[in-house]
Structure formats: structure tokens, C-alpha cells
Amino acid sequence: MKDLMGEFIERQSALATEIENRFAEYFRAAVVPPFGDNGPVRAGYGIVSRLLASPGCSAEAVAKRIAQLPSGQGVYVIMTDYAVPGAGASSFGVPGSGLKAIYRGHSSNIRERVMGHVTHGAYMAMCASKKDKKPWSAFFKIEDAPGDGGLDITSAPYNGATWAIVAFEMKDSTRPLRELAENGFSGAFGTPARSVKEPNTPLANFAVAA
């Protein structure tokens, strides 16, 4: 059994590396459309770009823009021109935007996860208003500090900056597969400053959405 387990672990690791490399190729070749002011801009293969906030944007306008994001599974990239330490760690960019990728994550619900990151107070209030709605945890932080993270891009000092999202939809994907996609993104462009590299995860149940 020991030899058999060793073989399976080796094969699993090799498959994970192959999948990450394939994702890296996909992300390098992906054509991301410019950010739109009037709604999400969609490209082929489930790529969506959306301007979330510009300087002085109201909370209501930001909420409407977040509501237009995909609600399914996928990988997303938070971009901004806010002065984030180490913002140049990732080379990913959208031509003409001047924005830096500062965080990439994944979720079974891109819309709600992004809401929790960038309009954290509104997200927690939404969860509290719904029976049995358990909020996510571990939101991104601009700087290392105690607490669970999350910010409000409609409040100072963040409301003086531009914020946007690029989402890569991954319908019916599992968490392990999305984590490999995250690592593929990092392999293609480097890990954004406020993200961490995902650990290698078991490859079981790829065909079951989670």
C-alpha cells in the first residue's frame, strides 16, 4: 500500500502542475475587454470586466455595479489605482486603464464574494438580514493588520481611487480546480500584492460543483 500511495501522490502532483500550467497559458492568451461605465463588458470564454467605482462614486452606484457581476463560480481580480504597497507584484493589466491587480481570489459566487471584499459593511448587513445566511470570512486587506479584513471603497480614503473587477467565470467548477486556476494566474502574471499562493490541493471530485 505504501508504494501504491506514493505513486498516486506523485501522479496527483504531476496532474496538478499540468493543470496549473494550462491555466497559465489560458490567462496569458485571454483578451480582457476595457472596463465599461454603463455595464459589465463581456468577452469570449466567460471573461467579464466591470468598473466598480471612480473617485466620489456613490454607495448606491457601486452597489448597482456589483449587482451586475456574475453570481456563479470563478476567479476574479480586484484592480485599483489606490496606493497599495507592492502593487506592482503582478504584471496583469487591462490596456488603457492604468489600474494594478492587487488581489486575485476565487469563489462559488463571484458577486457576493467581491461585495464582501469591497463593500464589507453592506455585505455583512445583507447577511444579517437573511435567515441562515452565513457570511464568508477572510477578506482581503490593504495592509497586514488584525481582523478579518474587508473595506468600503465608497468611504475615505478609498473613495478617492478607481476600482474595477475582472472575472473569469468557471461554471460547475470545484474549489480545488479554482485554486489551481489561481495558481495558474500567478504563474502567468505573478501573485498580486494582497493575495497568497494557494496550496496544492487534492484533485478529487473535480466534476462536482462546490
Rank of each mutant, 00 (worst) to 15 (best):
D37S: 15
A67F: 08
P192L: 00
K2R: 15
G39N: 09
F189V: 01
K131R: 13
S58A: 10
G44H: 08
A67G: 05
T191A: 08
K171H: 07
G72P: 01
L51D: 06
I153V: 12
D3T: 07
Y45E: 15
S195C: 06
R22P: 00
K171P: 07
I19R: 08
A122N: 00
A24D: 08
S137G: 11
H106L: 13
E25V: 05
L203V: 05
S13A: 12
G56Y: 06
A193C: 10
S155D: 15
N205M: 10
V31W: 07
S137V: 06
G46R: 11
V77M: 03
A207V: 06
A188V: 08
E20M: 10
M124A: 09
S71P: 00
E179C: 05
A16G: 14
K197A: 15
A209V: 11
R11N: 12
K2Q: 15
T119E: 11
D37V: 13
I19T: 13
T191L: 08
S90A: 10
F23I: 03
V48I: 15
G39I: 11
F8W: 14
D132L: 10
G74W: 03
F92E: 03
D3H: 05
N205L: 11
R104W: 05
S137M: 01
P176M: 09
P95A: 14
Q73T: 09
A53G: 02
Y45N: 14
P55L: 00
N205R: 11
A24P: 00
M79Y: 05
C57P: 03
G44Y: 08
A138Q: 02
A128V: 00
E18Y: 10
G96S: 01
Y158L: 12
M126C: 00
F189I: 02
K64G: 03
R42V: 12
R50T: 04
A138W: 13
A125V: 03
N183S: 06
